[in-house]
Design a binder for these strands. Structure first.
Length: 432
DNA sequence: TCTGGGGTCCTAGGACCC
DNA sequence: TCTGGGGTCCTAGGACCC
């Protein structure tokens, strides 16, 4: 059995590059994407566009993507916009437009599937592709296919991408970074010592800031040093599972298959406030906010065709501590009132002394609605009929954050998905 | 002027049942 | 009555990723 050939394809500065297609006059300029919706470009009377500059930004947003010109100033994803403004005050600031990025995402993925159908989604701007069974792919290690994929993506979107092609996902993910932007990197197993081992251990997908720090405390900085470390020592420090994985990863071994479809496990909505809010003093603000999140979540569930049996909340306090609570219901629900009630119950179990920075609502233990409402009269052997609570109970009370405006808010959204601001997700799972 | 939003997976303890 | 073990569900937190 020949070795597999797996590609990792990563779009170059994806959000920023999509924006440059829309605003070609910004090509070559430092541009950052992030923040709210209040800094969209204005069109002047003479038809020219006026862009917001980073120096004028106030708020708590972070950079989602920066153009390569902006990265030269040291600003990159995750950096607070206020901090970025200090580094690059004249950079152009654009709001994120997920609908547009999803359109381009679907275009590049469709283009890839025309050439190689085994595609694993890894978010909006990257995919893995199993090339192993494509005709002739093993003749040149996948180079011709790689060239064809890049051309197809460019043709479909006008955007460049970077591709790594190796025997597995772990190595391909590393290699797609090697020649960015517009790169194509092939790597064979025998090249691991020369090309992989000099890299910092942190570059491995799955070694984050915490693990990297603990490795450094052991004197391990590079992947090569990790590969040379005693497997038993790693297991001793990191546990059987993670320790053994660290050892395998450092040697470039990874048998994970390319998975072309997976069911979602949870759906959530969260929001960071403009200023920290207190549960009691700012109740009039918080109550409709929480209800609004529940309405949006119910809308997401309905649009995607799922119901949830475990509703959870997430709070971030002003000191950045995160607390979660969840509650498993007797039956699946997609009803905003039921979600709101469960979230309220969860909230009761939290000490709300500190001020809040973020509030979120999550729906877990998902089931497809189509599976829950299966017709009773069926030739198939009977399973116990799943229970499905669609209607809210008659006696309804908001346990916490209660405020007069909440009742009408819930009433108007009773219709369901329409009332919730739709996210227009292009990649919805089709209902069978 | 610190640090978004939407996810996945893992661990671990307690409840509960057989 | 006592002891022990296995399995599953629920909950909370944390690391990590895009």
């Amino acid at each position: 059995m020949p070795e597999r050939l797996i590609a990792h394809l990563d779009m170059d500065a994806f959000y920023a590059s999509v924006e440059l297609l829309r605003y070609p006059e910004l090509k070559g300029e430092p541009v950052v994407i992030g923040g709210g919706r209040d800094h969209a470009p204005r069109v002047l009377a003479d038809g020219t566009r006026r862009f917001a500059r980073l120096r004028h930004y106030t708020g708590r947003g972070v950079i989602t993507t920066a153009t390569y010109a902006a990265r030269a100033f040291g600003v990159n994803s995750g950096l607070g916009l206020m901090k970025a403004a200090a580094l690059a005050p004249d950079a152009v600031l654009l709001p994120v437009d997920f609908d547009e990025y999803r359109r381009y995402s679907r275009r590049f993925k469709d283009a890839v599937r025309q050439i190689a159908p085994l595609v694993e989604d890894r978010g909006i701007d990257e995919i893995y592709i199993d090339l192993s069974d494509l005709p002739g792919v093993h003749d040149d290690g996948g180079r011709a296919i790689g060239v064809a994929l890049k051309a197809a993506v460019l043709d479909a979107t006008g955007l460049t991408c970077s591709i790594g092609i190796t025997p597995n996902k772990l190595l391909s993910k590393l290699c797609s970074e090697f020649d960015k932007p517009d790169g194509l990197t092939l790597l064979r197993t025998d090249e691991i010592p020369a090309r992989i081992w000099p890299l910092p251990a942190r570059r491995i997908n799955g070694i984050g800031p915490k693990a990297a720090q603990r490795l450094e405390a052991l004197g391990i900085r590079s992947i090569g040093e990790l590969a040379a470390a005693d497997a038993a020592l790693l297991v001793g420090h990191f546990g059987a599972h993670y320790g053994a994985w660290l050892h395998e990863a450092a040697h470039g071994r990874d048998e994970r298959p390319v998975v072309t479809y997976s069911e979602p496990k949870s759906i959530s909505r969260e929001t960071t406030f403009d200023r920290d809010l207190h549960a009691v003093r700012d109740r009039a603000t918080l109550t409709p906010l929480l209800t609004g999140l529940c309405v949006e979540l119910a809308g997401d569930l309905a649009r995607k065709g799922y119901a949830s049996r475990t509703i959870g909340i997430k709070l971030r306090f002003d000191d950045f501590r995160i607390v979660t609570r969840d509650l498993t219901l007797p039956a699946h629900t997609m009803d905003a009132r039921s979600i709101r009630r469960a979230a309220g119950e969860c909230l009761k179990r939290v000490d709300l002394t500190r001020r809040l920075r973020l509030l979120g609502v999550r729906a877990g233990a998902l089931a497809k609605i189509a599976d829950l409402v299966k017709p009773v009269a069926s030739a198939a052997p009977r399973e116990p009929a799943p229970t499905f609570a669609r209607e809210p109970s008659a006696s309804y009370a908001l346990p916490l954050f209660d405020a007069p405006e909440t009742a009408p808010q819930l009433a108007t959204m009773a219709a369901g998905p329409r009332a919730a601001r739709a996210r227009n997700d292009d990649e919805e799972t089709p209902c069978p």
